[in-house]
Design a protein around this nucleic acid. Sequence first.
DNA 1: CGCCGTCTTGAAGATTCTCAACACCAGTGG
DNA 2: CCACTGGTGTTGAGAATCTTCAAGACGGCG
Lengths: 256, 256
Amino acid sequence: MKEKYMISSTKFVVKKLKSFIDLTDNEISTFSSMPSRLITLSAGREIVHEGQRAHNAFILLDGWVASYKLLPDGTRQIIDFQIPGDFLGLRSLLLRTSDHSFEAITEITIAEVSAQNIKSTFAKSPRLASAILWAASRDEAMVVEHLVNIGRRSAIVRTAHFLLELGIRLNLIGVGTKNSYPCPLSQYLLADALGLSAIHINRVLRQLREQNLMTFQKGIVHFDNLEKLIELADFQVGYLDQDEPIIRNDTGHTGH
Amino acid sequence: MKEKYMISSTKFVVKKLKSFIDLTDNEISTFSSMPSRLITLSAGREIVHEGQRAHNAFILLDGWVASYKLLPDGTRQIIDFQIPGDFLGLRSLLLRTSDHSFEAITEITIAEVSAQNIKSTFAKSPRLASAILWAASRDEAMVVEHLVNIGRRSAIVRTAHFLLELGIRLNLIGVGTKNSYPCPLSQYLLADALGLSAIHINRVLRQLREQNLMTFQKGIVHFDNLEKLIELADFQVGYLDQDEPIIRNDTGHTGH
DNA sequence: CGCCGTCTTGAAGATTCTCAACACCAGTGG
DNA sequence: CCACTGGTGTTGAGAATCTTCAAGACGGCG
């Protein structure tokens, strides 16, 4: 019965991975049967990750998470939000990474997977490994996009861009529609992600509303005029789309 | 004689890699003998990279490069600067990455290496592969740090932080001293990297000078009061140091 | 010499922040 | 049932930060 639960609860991850590489049923079951420990955490809890040395990673099965860095003056910068299907701490397992904290925004369910099990799963199925690495590298590309967003775009463009990006990501895992999605983020969280104050976020959202471009109220993001919004936000879908990697199911280590 | 030239001109890369993993002479010569095409470009030239599909990468042997993204309003955000020993386009070879442009800031010498040759070199020497991947992943960590820098730090702290980081990076390849280094960046370039206007950069540099913290004039960065500057900038050395990766000379594909 | 890129400074203006106050709602305990 | 509380959203007013426009200085280089 645990098995059954796993299969149903990995649906978001599987959907996401499939959007990158069309996995076979066999590969999917290899993935779903990866030994893991299910953990449920309530909103506001921190996901402890004991630095870079932790020999495990987490798959976010349900709920939303924020990864962030605290600054000495008490402010914080949210690096990115994780939605169902995303990995937590995978990068710090594979590569060096600036260590940051994770906080549950909603109640969440995560599956803890040991580095050892990830390695053996990668060995069992190179195409699966490729899909996972490819998904992880998309997250890297998003960080660069956020850098551009915060560095050079005005508050209104920045906000629009960010909420559009979230919409695309949610679409990939089958949540929401083209014009609307549920969003549990408070204006404070949005502010910390966009490098703005919550009060200014509020004003910006009002502007977007008054210009009939989009609304974000009561936990629902709705795009009223998607076309004009994409134009305003200078939104390029390129960095989120499903192109194939150049070096696929081996990164060069195995030679040929 | 090309061989000989290569050996001398790879000294920065070797120095950098050695700071991550103590490579043997054998491994170093494997690296230095990697077939490559030397290219010299004058300042201001763009390094053409034909999108993500390019089956090659570059090693920056000498000079400085900026990687950046242009925005439709003509402004740009510089993602990072590359200094001698850094790789260009390696990530887009291994992983997906938001594609950006490269521009030579000074006259530069780069070595073009094909994906094929990188793969076979990685196969020949796993420890070398590990060192290179580890170096590349440090650059990822820096992007996150830049995000925090731009998102949540004031102009003066941001500038100080960035110039300190550059100093550490240059020290790793044996350029400059603890308190001083040559820096070919114009105030315009610095502005585009920090998400500020060049005029404001100028004022910020003056403030730093007037507070006897540091100077940046005539192409020389000098730290007058390193300790106070590090405190002001909230600078953590952690993400640049030389810790070992968790998964070393294989990323999991080869099993164990 | 003249030109161009860079640095510098002033002044005005735009964007964004901080402080403060209030509305709303869900939950909680009396 | 109601008062209280804490989290969130909203709005106003003033202040700080940063940008834009404008002008001039300096140095390298054709």
